[in-house]
Simulated assay, not measured.
Amino acid sequence: MDRNFKHALAAALAAAALLACALAQAADLVPDARYAGIRPNGSKVDITQIGNDHTVTADQSGRGQRLVAVQSGVANTATLNQGGAYNAALVSQYGYNNYVQLDQSGRNNQAAVLQAGVANQASVVQSGAYNQAFVGQYGSGNQASVTQNGFGGKVVVTQYGNNGKASVTQQ
């Protein structure tokens, strides 16, 4: 047997073994009467992490929540909580040791946080309805805090450079 044939045969056997394992595990997935009354609520979380030592903690309750988190670099952390209904959030962190805390409750709130750099921190708290917040921090050691209560608030915080501080509260 030539060498290429041996490699092809080994790859085919490995693929067959993997398929057999997958089918055996799938056979365990049978409907269970205990969960018959549970219906999806339309909420969705997408998390993408590239690099090392990232942490995302996401907690969703309510209906129709949408959450996207992207982290690239090293040791970025995001703690994300959504309650109420139809809230949407996007968190993107690039760099090292950035942190986001996001809390949404109420209905139809939208938030986006983009951090690029080192040791930036952002906190966004939204309650009420139809609030919109954007926090963009580019540099190192920036801090931003946004609190929105009530109806229809709009906030944009953008910081370039190092060690900036911003705090916005809307009632």
Results as ranks from 00 to 15, higher is better:
residue 143 Q to I: 00
residue 61 S to L: 06
residue 82 Q to H: 09
residue 133 A to H: 03
residue 126 Q to N: 05
residue 82 Q to R: 09
residue 112 A to I: 11
residue 57 T to V: 12
residue 53 D to I: 04
residue 76 N to R: 06
residue 117 G to T: 02
residue 112 A to G: 13
residue 54 H to Q: 04
residue 147 T to D: 13
residue 83 G to C: 01
residue 105 S to K: 05
residue 68 V to D: 14
residue 58 A to E: 07
residue 138 Y to N: 14
residue 110 Q to T: 14
residue 130 Y to N: 12
residue 51 G to I: 11
residue 68 V to R: 12
residue 98 N to G: 02
residue 70 V to K: 09
residue 66 R to H: 10
residue 63 R to K: 11
residue 82 Q to V: 08
residue 141 G to S: 08
residue 136 G to N: 09
residue 123 S to M: 10
residue 94 Y to V: 13
residue 151 F to A: 02
residue 130 Y to D: 14
residue 56 V to M: 03
residue 93 Q to G: 02
residue 89 A to W: 03
residue 88 A to K: 09
residue 102 L to H: 13
residue 120 N to V: 00
residue 150 G to K: 02
residue 85 A to Y: 14
residue 82 Q to T: 05
residue 136 G to C: 07
residue 79 T to P: 00
residue 53 D to A: 13
residue 53 D to H: 14
residue 106 G to M: 12
residue 51 G to S: 08
residue 149 N to E: 11
residue 52 N to W: 12
residue 150 G to Q: 05
residue 122 A to T: 10
residue 140 S to A: 15
residue 116 A to P: 00
residue 56 V to T: 10
residue 92 S to P: 00
residue 111 A to T: 11
residue 96 Y to G: 00
residue 116 A to R: 15
residue 62 G to Y: 15
residue 54 H to K: 02
residue 57 T to P: 00
residue 111 A to D: 10
residue 89 A to T: 09
residue 131 N to C: 02
residue 67 L to E: 12
residue 102 L to I: 01
residue 108 N to E: 13
residue 86 Y to I: 00
residue 108 N to D: 15
residue 143 Q to Y: 01
residue 101 Q to F: 04
residue 111 A to P: 06
residue 125 V to D: 15
residue 118 V to K: 10
residue 73 G to I: 01
residue 54 H to S: 05
residue 95 G to Q: 09
residue 62 G to W: 15
residue 102 L to T: 01
residue 136 G to W: 06
residue 149 N to W: 10
residue 65 Q to I: 10
residue 63 R to F: 13
residue 64 G to K: 10
residue 145 S to P: 00
residue 99 Y to W: 09
residue 117 G to C: 07
residue 136 G to D: 05
residue 58 A to F: 04
residue 110 Q to I: 12
residue 76 N to C: 08
residue 115 Q to C: 04
residue 104 Q to R: 09
residue 100 V to D: 08
residue 68 V to W: 02
residue 128 G to C: 05
residue 85 A to R: 15
residue 53 D to F: 15
residue 137 Q to F: 04
residue 120 N to G: 03
residue 152 G to C: 04
residue 121 Q to C: 00
residue 148 Q to M: 06
residue 123 S to N: 13
residue 91 V to G: 08
residue 145 S to Q: 10
